[in-house]
Amino acid sequence: MKKILVVDDEIHIVQVVAIKLRNNGFEVITADNGQSAYNLAVAECPDAIITDLQMPGITGLEMVEKLRNTESTADIPVIMLTARGLSIDTQEIDKLSIVACLSKPFSPREVLETLKVAVEPLAV
């Protein structure tokens, strides 16, 4: 069973993604801010991360940058969820090798499909 880390400061968003993934055979761990997510990622080495962009404390992008600079987490595929829309720095997204950037409101179905593609070699 593949382990996915879901990060969002909105508890309902974490919950809905987690239910969707668990119902489809993934193991899910969760965090509600960037720093906790980074610590969890280093400790648990998940197979993929689904994270919100804008969060209190360190943002989603800052967290991914830290992950990329840490050897054990440098290659973890990341899917970004964002409600911002207007000011996404696409260069930053490319530089951090983010697999996909999905806009809120999102479809849990689409998140699942994107995740399957991202973790294809590891997919259940």
Partner: peptide, 15 residues
Amino acid sequence: VSHELKTPLASITAY
């Protein structure tokens, strides 16, 4: 506002 509107909307559509 976009962020604030989209966050509850995201929950509504997802659930």
